[in-house]
């Protein structure tokens, strides 16, 4: 299956381990991620400045993939939510006309509305792939207790994500954890935001949000936190020390992307999974 790989702004700089493991695990399961030129920002940060400009940015990225006859696969939950919301907004004929006018000026073709946008985790959590994973386990993770942080934009707005899963009881990444044989732990602050998107407005609250979640999962006995978005990973991994300090604790909690976890279970190499870029060391 061919998809246009939409990386967005953060992944190519801040999430090399995610990009590496995503590309390699996708290839392993016959998912062909194609790099296209001229993708720009998804539009998310521009919503605070001009909502039409934000929609134009989303639309031009959609058109770049659509004109190649490809659906988009995204790795960043914020990008996936923003591009998916744009698809719904562009169902409005007048708004589509206005945006297509801007696209015509740029000379990159017109938005037709025939493509889909999916998060890679939604594709990798399909039963056919998870069955192959379960049948090819070469690294034992049965003694590991894992906490999942689904993250806000991975699930919401539910309308943009096609209401594919219950926002209060998500299952896609849980199915991945189950397939690799580990145990998923439940915890009180599971649906709490990582805080990164409001970091610039109020650092103290952002750190408390990330820190309280890390503290919660540590108390419930988690061996690691599993994430699906580069922003969440920065909040919990890069900022771990200061986030923990904000809630008066010290932790050393490994943070792994679901793609790294899947690859680890089926015996892919550390290099393929980008483990050299994990900031909190772990020996499993």
């Amino acid at each position: 299956m061919d998809y246009a790989l939409y990386l967005g702004c953060a992944i190519p700089i801040k999430a090399l381990k995610y990009e590496l493991s995503a590309r390699n695990i996708a290839a392993r399961f016959g998912i062909n991620l194609i790099d296209l030129k001229c993708f720009t920002c998804c539009g998310f940060p521009v919503k605070s400045m001009d909502n039409l400009a934000a929609l134009y940015l989303s639309a031009r990225n959609l058109v770049i993939a659509e004109s190649q006859g490809l659906d988009i696969v995204g790795l960043c939950s914020g990008c996936v939510a923003t591009l998916s919301e744009a698809i719904i907004m562009l169902e409005d004929i007048n708004l589509r006309k206005e945006i297509n006018g801007l696209l015509k000026k740029e000379g990159i073709g017109q938005y037709k509305g025939i493509l889909k946008v999916r998060h890679l985790a939604k594709i990798l959590s399909k039963d056919t792939i998870l069955e192959q994973i379960s049948n090819n386990i070469s690294f034992d993770l049965t003694n590991k207790c894992l906490a999942i942080h689904y993250g806000c934009h991975y699930l919401k707005p539910s309308e943009a994500h096609g209401k594919l899963e219950d926002v209060n009881r998500p299952t896609s990444i849980s199915k991945i954890v189950k397939a690799i044989g580990a145990k998923e732990i439940d915890y009180d602050l599971k649906s709490q935001c990582c805080g990164l998107t409001m970091m610039s407005a109020d650092e103290s609250i952002a750190y408390q949000l990330a820190g309280s979640k890390l503290k919660d999962i540590a108390e419930k006995g988690a061996d690691a936190l599993i994430v699906a978005c580069p922003s969440c990973c920065v909040a919990f991994e890069n900022n771990q020390k200061i986030a923990c300090k904000a809630v008066d604790t010290t932790l050393s909690m490994p943070v792994l992307y679901y793609t790294q976890l899947m690859g680890l279970a089926i015996g892919m190499s550390d290099k393929e999974l980008g483990f050299e870029f994990n900031r909190v060391a772990f020996k499993w």
Binding site: C152, H153, K156, C193, T197, M198, L209
Partner: peptide, 25 residues
């Protein structure tokens, strides 16, 4: 500016008001 854009408010609203989006506006 402190809204984290988590969309929880929009999901919960009984009137289906897009609260997060109104804040963006």
């Amino acid at each position: 500016w402190k809204c984290s854009t988590c969309f929880t408010c929009s999901e919960r609203c009984p009137q289906r008001i897009k609260v997060t989006e109104i804040l963006w506006m």
